[in-house]
Design a binder for these strands. Structure first.
Lengths: 335, 335
DNA sequence: GAGCCGCGTTGTAACGATAAACCGCAGTTC
DNA sequence: GAACTGCGGTTTATCGTTACAACGCGGCTC
């Protein structure tokens, strides 16, 4: 392995000069700079990332903690975070959180996260106090839910407003018996994304003077395609009479579309369906899926901006909470 | 930041003993071991990954180079690689290759990859000689295509056999005018996955005594949902009379389903469709998509096994090439 | 009882980079 | 002409961990 000292010897300078050239630091004469660059090229030198990280106390890697990439929302998110972070000179390591046992999450996050300069985390299971503890250890940006307070930065989706708009949209199209398809609300956590989205649904019904019927509430086995499909099956098989479905995520909604098709229910003629997240696939399903577009690009840009401010220390103190602009995208499933 | 020396001081031992305990190395007396573990816990010590990596010359990180995670095949792959590598004590950093300018690919791969203990790479653009050069620098496992020779390990899909089976399946179901939907074959590269899959299609037609008609050949704007949709639009709008479609990937196939639906073409009644990759979404599209299942789990396990053998030096020399078992999965789109 | 062995533990020297202090030297300033 | 300022570079001292050799010590052999 060729080291910086080798390059220095070849170029006839000190290692610091090589370092200065490579990092574009202070003034180095053109002649020396050229010699160094040539020495780098002929020797095939590449910097040792570990040594640099050790000395500088920064790794140049940011962690992205998501439940898993099998969910298209998270893979879309990861894709953009990787791309954007790459432009900013950072590498991204992905942590799976759903694989961990509940309690392990926090521990794993704390210990491993120290190898990262910062951490972006979708906080599904982690509580406010854990998040704040974590934030004292490492620059942290939470994503998807409401504020946890303290010095934790947070980029939220318009969860309540989004499902409210989605539900109102169905009502406006004439739906009166609208099912909410999601997993059960988490207990004791009014900041949870699932809870918030459910609230939006309830608010829209109330504004329209409609009663939320518990019969319309179904619980898929998880926020997945198969969960949504199973929920739709049960809905139809139990003879629940609905003319609209609001699903907590697009994955679930796409599963619902499949489940309704299995039972010969026509969308949008018999039932209108709307999701949340506006994943790529929503444009291409049959029928295409109406959804709430949560401003992915805005979110990713904002997340990274906030994180970098924390990493560089440009901004300290109380956590910021920014809510992404959302947009209702009407497609065939509710047209 | 609490360091190993701090722990050593608290426990009243040397840093080496702490190191030995933490790494479970040679015999350490139980009493000392306990003291050290307690000191670690009370102090909240976590190991500095950079220092360890510098000293050991290994980072514990493996790179996964894929075009992008927006493609469900690659996100599925990444998801499983991350999960499996995690079990083996490795972390995964993802590199986007499609974002790079063509020529940069190799350079980026070479320089950055040195920070990884090993690299798993989907070789779409990289050539055999580049791959071999790269493999001399770092343990490398290629995925998806045929052998590049040399000492490069390689886990291949049954590309030719897969599309041959898919096409034969359509023929068996009565299709006679079968379109191949893919991007143009790469020139001068008979090892390319796109070329190989096309060959399988051609072979099946030949075996059945059918003429491949260039009119059935359409070129989407890329291997994406929208590419597939646009291709289907053009197919119908140009009045090409087909009763079957073999798509190079599931993403393209799912796009084709959407495109055909746009034009009122019924699947499978008017046209049967089959894809390749068997991504999750294939089970849940309407209609559900027949596909070639390329043995994802087998591939991921094998890739990591091969890579670890190279990393540990258990196996050296000529590259292995293993072909994953494939399976035709028949669903509604060709039923 | 001298010598040897192996166990448990410790000092010391790297691993490859960078921060910070320092060092000539030419050009300014007053 | 003495003191000061930049410029272009070098020297020195780490960053936190692990490899390696060495060491004290009780037990065993003969």
């Amino acid at each position: 392995m060729v080291t910086m000292a080798d390059v220095a010897r070849i170029a006839g300078v000190s290692t610091m000069t090589v370092s200065n050239v490579l990092n574009d630091r202070k003034a180095v004469s053109d002649s020396v700079r050229e010699r160094v660059i040539e020495a780098v090229e002929t020797s095939g030198y590449v910097m040792n990332h570990s040594a640099r990280a050790l000395r500088k106390g920064a790794t140049g890697v940011i962690g992205l903690a998501v439940p898993g990439l099998d969910n298209p929302y998270f893979s879309l998110l990861a894709d953009r975070v990787i791309a954007r972070a790459g432009q900013l000179g950072y590498r991204v390591a992905i942590e799976h959180t759903s694989a961990e046992v509940e309690g392990e999450l926090a521990a794993v996050a704390t210990s491993r996260s120290l190898d990262y300069d910062g951490l972006i985390m979708t906080a599904v299971e982690i509580g406010p106090e854990e998040a704040q503890r974590l934030a004292r250890t490492i620059p942290l940006v939470l994503i998807g839910e409401r504020s946890v307070g303290g010095s934790v930065d947070h980029v939220a989706m318009a969860n309540v407003e989004g499902t409210r708009a989605a539900t109102a949209h169905l009502i406006e199209r004439g739906c009166r018996r609208i099912a909410w398809v999601s997993v059960p609300d988490p207990v004791d956590d009014t900041n949870n994304v699932l809870y918030l989205r459910h609230q939006g649904y309830l608010q829209a019904l109330e504004q329209a003077g409609l009663e939320p019927d518990p019969g319309f509430r179904v619980h898929p086995g998880g926020l997945t395609l198969s969960g949504g499909r199973d929920a739709a099956h049960r809905l139809v098989d139990d003879g629940v009479d609905v003319d609209g479905v609001v699903a907590v995520t697009d994955s679930v909604a796409l599963g619902v579309l499949r489940g309704l098709a299995d039972r010969g229910v026509r969308v949008p003629d018999d039932v209108r369906v709307v999701g949340f997240d506006d994943v790529n696939e929503a444009q291409f399903s049959v029928p295409s899926l109406s959804s709430i577009h949560p401003g992915h690009d805005w979110m990713v840009d904002t997340m990274l901006t906030l994180l970098l401010e924390r990493i560089t220390g440009t901004r300290t103190g109380t956590g910021l909470e920014l809510v992404a602009p959302y947009e209702l995208v009407v497609r065939e499933s509710s047209a």
